[in-house]
Nucleic acid binder design. Structure first.
Lengths: 212, 212
DNA sequence: ATTCGTTCTTGACAAGTGTCAAGATTCTGG
DNA sequence: CCAGAATCTTGACACTTGTCAAGAACGAAT
């Protein structure tokens, strides 16, 4: 009997600990989300913990309760960003019944991303560059890059499939192409160039049939 | 006669001023070059004027004699970097007599750049990302980007010409493609991935005949 | 209601930042 | 050689930074 009680107590304690961990982790993500706001606004170089705290409902000390240091926080931000990012086009890929439908769905989402999520994406490019200097970022960044490459590959494969073809280049080359185009368009867009979005769309519209 | 003397004096004074300006500008470039060393080592976010000064033969005060502020210095660095960068492949383009020769010359320089100038190039990617946040960088960065696009276009055009063809994509798409591939390879290379360089070369070797 | 562990706030610390001004040094024209 | 300009050094300033520790507020179990 003593053993049974001990077992039950253990289960209760374990459940409580899991619950606490979940709460702890949820808070971490809340904080990371708040940090992403400021990071997207100011960029990595200009963002301080106090600035993050001021643009949020938290005080600056709380970040050190949930993160071991600044890098830990930003790594958490990067990982959280990833989850939101890599499934952006999956709906379009899953529902499109023809090449045209896929093209238009893809282009629409692409344009929307450029317009509405410019801050988040410039942060991604910022952090990817930081990873070239700061080893602590590299693992997460390389992982996200792989995921994004896979995302592009899913689009291209489906597009090719709908035309009874196969993509003519490697996943790496395709990702480089689209990522490079988006990065360039994003910079122009942020610089106030109104033609950035339409030019990106034209380029992609013309490119899709030639690479897949 | 008075007028002649005045004229002569004016000429002398003008010449002196030009000389002073040249000296001033030469010093600015010396300082910018020193700054580039540290910037390439630490990245924009972690580089301070004092750090730059310590890694050079100058004291930190000098930088404020030659530059109005930190952004001014870094803009000068960016512009100076450009001049060295955009002519890297011109020799190869000018001397290559066949597609193979151009390919091998291009690939060799590409590999050498990845190996030997990784620091300078990660700085370029860093500053290009900074331009998405800091408006002061945008003009210079966009200009360099255009120059690099033109550089790639010269290579591709020549390659196509040597095969009696024409490039199949726009300058923007070609630049996006090669820049994206290089950026990705650079990150992998800096992360210690020994396969980064050969994989980049394979990719480019395979890509050249299909895009031109 | 009290106690105890979790969570959060506040304020301080040392180190580092860009900027500037006063003065030392060097260069240069007369 | 010397006065005045150009160049450079030094040290200070006000401010920001990441980090941490002491303790307040809170919540839950006894």
């Amino acid at each position: 009997m003593a053993r049974q009680v001990t077992g039950a107590a253990r289960r209760v304690a374990d459940a409580a600990e899991v619950l606490r961990d979940e709460k702890f982790n949820a808070r971490r993500i809340e904080l990371a989300e708040a940090a992403l706001e400021t990071l997207g606004e100011l960029g990595f170089a200009r963002t301080s913990l106090r600035e993050i705290a001021q643009n949020s409902a938290f005080t600056h000390g709380v970040f050190h309760y949930y993160f071991s240091d600044k890098l830990d926080l930003i790594c958490c931000c990067v990982r959280h960003y990833k989850a939101k990012c890599v499934t952006r086009y999956d709906d379009v890929v899953a529902t499109a019944k023809s090449r045209d439908e896929l093209t238009e769905g893809f282009l629409a989402k692409l344009a929307a991303t450029l317009q509405n999520e410019a801050r988040m994406h410039r942060l991604w490019y910022d952090l990817r560059s930081q990873a070239m200097f700061e080893a602590a970022f590299r693992k997460d960044v390389l992982e996200i890059d792989k995921s994004l490459e896979a995302m592009i590959w899913r689009i291209a494969s489906r597009y090719a499939e709908l035309g009874g073809k196969r993509p003519v280049s490697s996943p790496a080359a395709l990702y480089a192409l689209f990522d490079g185009l988006f990065q360039s368009a994003l910079l122009k867009h942020l610089a106030g160039d109104k033609t950035a979005a339409p030019e990106l769309l034209d380029e992609v519209r013309h490119l899709l049939p030639t690479v897949c």
